[in-house]
């Protein structure tokens, strides 16, 4: 190690700032690659629950490598220091890689299935709203219509607000999944 000039040996302790542990105040989307082994999801869920971290959404699926799975989850950065969440996750031996995705550099999608009451002959109205959201009608019965909506969480929530007055029988959401924009690997 080369010695630095004496002038820079002076350091006012007041200049030092704490480097982490802060709450960011926003929602974080974590993309976690894990070994595809039994019990890995339980380890992650267990870690979150015992450290008091709250998972808002969770989506799990295989990747192009059969030995690796991807878990995409969202965590509230206002409630927890996000670096503490990622560092605790990294301690799990089966966790390979964690990306805290930058919202500006990420495309996110979620799939939701809305089962809406169509009792009062209002089916056409519901389908009309679904069309505006580029939703797909995937099931129809005498008394209900089921619509598939894909998009960001905000889009799904907007659709929910519009169809709720018709009578929402059931709503099933997958949780958000995400991929980075451009050539960069997530």
């Amino acid at each position: 190690m080369a010695e630095e000039p004496a002038a820079s040996d002076v350091l006012s302790l007041d200049e030092l700032e704490a480097v982490s542990g802060a709450r960011t105040g926003r929602r974080h989307l974590l993309s976690v690659l894990v070994e595809n082994k039994p019990g890995v999801l339980a380890r992650i869920a267990g870690l979150f629950s015992r450290r008091g971290f709250n998972i808002e959404t969770l989506a799990v699926g295989p990747t192009d490598d059969p030995t690796v799975s991807r878990i995409t989850l969202t965590v509230d950065g206002a409630a927890h220091p996000i670096d503490q969440v990622t560092k605790q996750l990294h301690k799990l031996v089966n966790v390979l890689k964690i990306r805290d995705l930058d919202p500006d550099e990420t495309v996110t999608r979620e799939l939701a299935l809305f089962k809406v009451s169509a009792d009062d002959g209002r089916r056409a109205e519901i389908v009309g709203v679904a069309d505006i959201f580029r939703g797909k009608v995937i099931d129809v019965s005498k008394r209900s219509v089921t619509v598939e909506i894909t998009g960001t969480g905000a889009k799904i929530e907007a659709f929910e607000e519009l169809v709720r007055p018709f009578g929402l029988v059931e709503l099933v959401r997958t949780g958000e999944t995400a991929v980075t924009r451009g050539r960069l690997v997530t």
Partner: peptide, 22 residues
């Protein structure tokens, strides 16, 4: 105090007390 925190476990850094030099 300001804190230097040397630890082999990165999750200990700033867990309870924010470190200035981890």
């Amino acid at each position: 105090a300001k804190f230097i925190h040397i630890d082999v476990d990165p999750a200990e850094i700033s867990k309870n007390v924010p470190a200035h030099i981890p």
